[in-house]
Structure formats: C-alpha cells, structure tokens
Write a protein that binds this DNA or RNA. Structure first.
Lengths: 198, 198
DNA sequence: CGTTGCATGTAAGGTGTTACATGATTAC
DNA sequence: GTAATCATGTAACACCTTACATGCAACG
C-alpha cells in the first residue's frame, strides 16, 4: 500500500549514530578520522566517544540509509581520502529524531564508585587512591571542557555547543567536588572505626 | 610449567560481572530475581543496571569460573528456585580485582545533553521540555537515593553502601541543579536572539 | 478474570571493542 | 631511525538488550 507521497520510512538508529550524524550536521565535509577528532573535542564530555572502527561503520550505515553522502577526494599528498557530508534527508531525519524520539535517561557506569561500594573487600588506602585519581581526572576534564567552551564561543552559530560545554565544565567540576567530599567521608569512616573489615 | 601452588589464573570479567558478584558479596544467598532487585535498589544510582537475562548469564558464568555456587531450594510454595552465593575464591577474586584492576573512567551517555548539543536542529520549546524532564527525573532520583541511604544506614556493616548512597544523593541533586541552570541558559539564549535557527 | 509480581531461562540480534593490517608523512 | 600522527578499513569477538516462552500466586 505504499505510495510516493508517504514520508520516508523512519530508520531506527542507536543514539551513537545520531551523535555521528550530529557532528556532520555542523556543516563540514569530514573524514572518519576528523569525525573522531570532533568527538574527542567535545562529545566525550557528555557522551561516550565511540571507537574509531565504530565511527567508520556508522558512517557507512548513515550513507546506506541516505542520511550522509561521501565522495573520494585527494588530499594534499595525492592520496585518496573519503569525506562525508550530511544530506537533506539526514538533516530532516535528525530534526525528526530530536522532535519525536523518546529521550533515553542518562546512562552512567561509574567505575570508581563501584569500587567504593565494595569497600569492605578492599584496603582503605586503595579506596583513597581510586577516589583521589577520580577527583584529579575530573578537575582535568573540567579544565579541558572550559577550553572547548572558549573554542565554541569563538564560532558564530555555535551557541548550543557553547551551552553544552558550559554544562560540561560545571558537571566535571561537580564531580571533582563530589569526589573530594567522598574522600572526606571515607576518612571519617576509617577514623571512626566503623569501616567493615577486609 | 604450571604447578599446584600458583595463584589461581585470573579471569578477565567485565565490570558488570563484578557488580553482580559484589551483590552476592554482601553475604546472602540470592536468586537471580533478587540480585536484580538489589541492583534496582542501589546499583542503578551509579552503575547502569543490567537486564534480567544478563544477570542470569553472569551468574552462570560466575559459577563456571568458581566465584559463585548455586543450589536448588524449594520455595514456600514447593516450586524450585536456584539460589547463588559467593565462594571463597569469588571473594578473593573480587578483592584482587579491587586492589589491582585498572579503574575504568566513568562512562556517561547523556541523552538529554546530546539533544541540546544539536539544538540548532530542534524547536526551542522541545529543548526546554527535554531538559525540564531531565531536571524532574533527577530530583526524583535524588529522593529515591536518599531512601536507599536511610535503608543502608539502618544495617550494620553497610557503611560503604551508605557512603555511596550519600554520594548518589548529592550527584542527582547536582544533576537537577545543572539542568535548572541549563534551562536558564537556554531561555537567555532564546531571549537574546542568538539561537541558531531551525 | 485480568493484571501484577515472582521466577527462570533461551534465542536472536544489535551494539561496541580490540586486534590486526597497511602505508605515508612529520617531528624528535 | 623511530615514534607519533594521519588515514582507512576488516575480522573476530565480547557485551548487552529485546523478544519470546513458561507457569504459579496474589490482588482487585
């Protein structure tokens, strides 16, 4: 019963595919490698950065469903590189996804906290070490997110990425502070003698 | 060259397997169903709760490598249920994992923020809706984590779960506040007319 | 008499990673 | 020279979810 005027059949894609398409949606023709760099640049602060090989396969899939188009160009050195761009159908599909797809709740897998939760099986010094590392890494991430924020602020039309980068700075700063407070709680627990034994 | 006094060969398991083993490590004999309930009770606040079917297969794997043991008991109604308990080898392996395994950095996949990042493809009202829902869900999660904290505080020997629950309350409260601030930023952006068009 | 909860799994398939393979260019 | 970066993929595998299948008990 299909006829020509129907809207295009919706393709169900994982959020990672939309993230990759989103990178293309900022308008430039990009190689898989460059998509990866963009992901590293900003996406990683709020959305797990996919592996290189997955980016290549997502790009291939996006092209198959018509949301991206690729062409082979020769780089400065004459070697061929494949660049991808979002298509009109891709832009429409992304808009539709934003407008209508149910929003998955944030998924968190917090390795350091998992360790603390099992603290009764560990040496308290090891727990301190784990949480301290997490605190310091969070501080680094906050600083890096702030750089990304400044970079976004310098580009016109990047107001939303700038907002998200601002959120990311606050998020990782909060993570740093939460880790610091957890460290205090840990110290207090050990000092009080209420820590369950190994 | 293997001989009898070597430490047991280390088995490489995904963090989810350690999480399931960790639930058993709190000491009781549990059915797969009950493991799931514990995961829902506390784990979900800081570590993505695995699907029921995955819990069953992780339990099976843990038994295969000798970290858990199961036996069939008959429930009150006479129907058979399989209960799992951690073994000494499992406890030792979990301690070893805590002490030595590299700690994976927290993995975050933030669906709502991914949408905001692609805000130029969406209607501003839709973005408000997405972030508002996230803010309210975070508030709910903080309240639920606080209940879990109170429950943990009532059990002696649960000092570490209590610490983690306290962290979870703060974390989800922070998420709520970050969402509220993002909402303000969003409003300001739209009011200023700098929001890129659809 | 239908829904929810308890309880246990299997099968299929999708998602995502690691390892492998290749090769040029640039920086130390 | 050798390490890092650019650049592109394939193959194998591990992880994890969804859908399916089953059946009893309790509640309304």
């Amino acid at each position: 019963m299909a006829h020509a005027d129907e809207p295009p059949a919706e393709v169900r894609l994982p959020a990672t595919a939309w993230a990759v398409l989103g990178i293309l949606a900022f308008g430039e023709e990009l190689t898989g490698y460059e998509v990866r760099q963009w992901a590293e640049h900003i996406l990683r602060f709020f959305y797990w950065s996919p592996a290189m090989s997955q980016i290549y396969s997502e790009l291939k899939r996006l092209e198959q469903v018509g949301y991206a188009a690729s062409r082979e160009v020769s780089g400065e050195d004459g070697r061929p590189r494949r660049v991808y761009a979002i298509t009109d159908a891709g832009r429409a599909a992304a808009s539709d996804w934003l407008a209508h797809a149910p929003v998955e709740p944030p998924a968190l897998k917090h390795g350091p906290l998992l360790r603390v939760w099992l603290g009764h099986l560990a040496d308290p010094d090891r727990l301190r070490e784990v949480v301290t590392q997490h605190r310091d890494r969070s501080a680094d991430l906050a600083a890096e997110a702030d750089e990304a924020r400044r970079a976004a602020a310098a580009v016109s039309g990047w107001a939303y990425p700038e907002l998200v980068a601002r959120w990311a700075v606050r998020y990782h700063t909060a993570e740093r502070d939460l880790a610091a407070r957890l460290l205090d709680d840990l110290d207090e627990l050990v000092a009080s003698g209420r820590a369950p034994d190994l």
